[in-house]
Design a protein around this nucleic acid. Structure first.
Lengths: 329, 329
DNA sequence: GTGAAAGCGCTAACAC
DNA sequence: GTGTTAGCGCTTTCAC
């Protein structure tokens, strides 16, 4: 029925070992033999069985991707970068949504390992202690993109949230602003922590503070931005730093609906830099993270681990820019 | 090193067949034996090798997903629906971006089949003749979501674009509009064809026409919407029907920048209904496609094929609603 | 440069 | 209810 390496061998009058060599590009084959085998492969329309190969060679050329939510435009952009690089290196990607839920992450992890993936890439999200243990004890390399554990011990790729946040806060303080707020979500503990730390450091240096009342943590959705605004409005913030673009856009609209002028009365800047920032008016000011690259570089790093290449730097920090568009002065 | 079914069998003093039965939930095992085996599995932290299982059973519980571009918010929404259902039925998904390029599609197809996926789901996009052949000759079931071939012979899930388009056009004509335009993109031949057909039928019935000058086909991106507007503006359309939300938003902004009032001078309505429609002001009028469901139902259909369940209807048409928001009167 | 043969870890008859 | 055995389709020594 399905045609196997054995059929090809018989037709080409060689052993299966030779067919295997041809298929795998092993140079130790006389070119006449090679041609003959290739002709038969062509004629029989032979397609190597990757499952059998995986069992025999203990390599599946498959990598697992654990992603909070592929329908989130921020993560889907990472996923695209990562898949392109995977393809470049001949890997397929099994993608699974975790909703950043440690229980689901655990399940996915087990499924992936059971499928004998050659490596795993863990995207964004918060690293629970349990998940961290899973990663550390995994029999295959794991790279995290867009987050890291608190001790930054994992192979990871990120931008410097702390620095970006400091820069922004610095600028706003220089404009004379005094009341700041922060809005984040459950997805990205690292961004959450670093952005707040950056703000607080600069504010403190200027005898200002970020009170707990000026911090809102939600779910990073558009609707949640509206909630964030109504939660924060009594504080009368003059500027809000917000992790998620969707949330930020929700805040802009909620503020406008409440009669505020953006950016005159309230400045807003976000950190995710998805394509959304260009699609709203006023255009959203944001930290330009190289999303595609964060995914791509993460996968490249993973390929290095999988092929035992030399790793110069396991904690990659990618450059960012800050684009002050319409929602800041 | 890695622990196998054989190790478990030895430790539990049973045969590997019995371990296999326990692992696969076969009821023909005495519960005392089952408990003993499970205890050993637990203790040894045994994890079945899905690759070996796949080779032996000829089932991989893996499905392939061919998607034009996962970073496109429209497709990523489909992908999420599909993956959730796949997970529900214990399948993993290998996701690959095709950019709707027949050459890449061919490659992906071969990779997927080589990996012995149990089924393939083909998302959106245009079905080239070559790809159609690939699908028809595939050794595993294939379903398409969000598109179909011209003859509608494939297992597919869609909405009725023709009907939606007719309804919209009807309404606009009743308002007294006379100059219509259409904007589409290369991704979705079916939507492209059906929406135009729906428009044309209604226009014709009202002694109106959709001239070729009033049709713009681009790449469905935000920037492309701006191009579309400058291409169409000489026709002074009073209403534009547009497949993609991003494109439609680009048109809205371009029109506003050109001094037009939306919807007073120009009405715009789109068909993709991604979350974007809510995130712009004025809110974009659109056909509310059940994106998540199109993906989910597609995967459900595929599971039916893979498990030889009875198929009542292989060409599923899902309901839609039309939401007239801020960009129409 | 090529072939023979032994697995990879599991499932699926089949026998008992 | 449980064990034995023969593969699944390939890679990988090891000979020659």
């Amino acid at each position: 029925m399905t045609i196997t390496i054995y059929d090809v061998a018989r037709e080409a009058k060689v052993s299966m070992a030779t067919v295997s060599r041809v298929v795998n590009g092993n140079p130790n084959v006389k070119s006449a033999t090679r041609d003959r085998v290739n002709e038969v492969i062509q004629r029989l329309n032979y397609r190597p069985n990757a499952v059998a190969r995986g069992l025999a060679s203990k390599k599946t050329t498959t990598v697992g991707v654990i992603i909070p939510d592929i329908s989130n435009i921020y993560y889907s952009e990472l996923a695209r970068g990562l898949e392109d690089v995977a393809k470049m290196y001949k890997y397929q990607t099994i993608i699974s949504n975790s909703d950043n839920d440690p229980v689901k992450e655990h399940e996915i992890f087990n499924n992936l390992l059971s499928k004998q993936v050659d490596g795993i890439i863990f995207l964004g999200g918060t690293l629970s202690g349990e998940t961290l243990k899973l990663i550390e004890s995994a029999p295959v390399p794991v790279v995290v993109s867009g987050t890291n554990d608190v001790n930054e011990t994992l192979p990871a790729v990120n931008i410097d949230y702390y620095k970006a946040s400091s820069e922004i806060t610095e600028r706003l303080v220089k404009q004379g602003l005094r009341r700041f707020a922060f809005v984040g979500g459950g997805y990205s503990a690292k961004a959450l922590k670093d952005v707040q730390a950056g703000m607080k450091a600069v504010l403190k240096a200027n005898d200002l503070t970020l009170s707990d009342h000026a911090i809102y943590i939600g779910d990073e959705q558009y609707r949640d931005g509206e909630k964030a605004f109504s939660h924060l409005k009594e504080q009368k913030p003059e500027a809000i730093l917000c992790i998620s673009d969707e949330q930020a856009i929700g805040i802009v609209h909620a503020a406008q609906d409440a009669g505020l002028q953006v950016p005159e009365d309230l400045q807003i800047i976000s950190f995710n830099n998805t394509r959304l920032v260009q699609m709203v008016r006023p255009k959203l000011s944001s930290v330009m993270q190289p999303l595609y690259d964060i995914g791509a570089v993460g996968m490249r790093l993973l390929t290095k681990y999988m092929n035992d290449e030399n790793i110069e730097e396991k904690n990659v920090v990618l450059p960012y820019k800050i684009d002050y568009r319409g929602t800041t002065r």
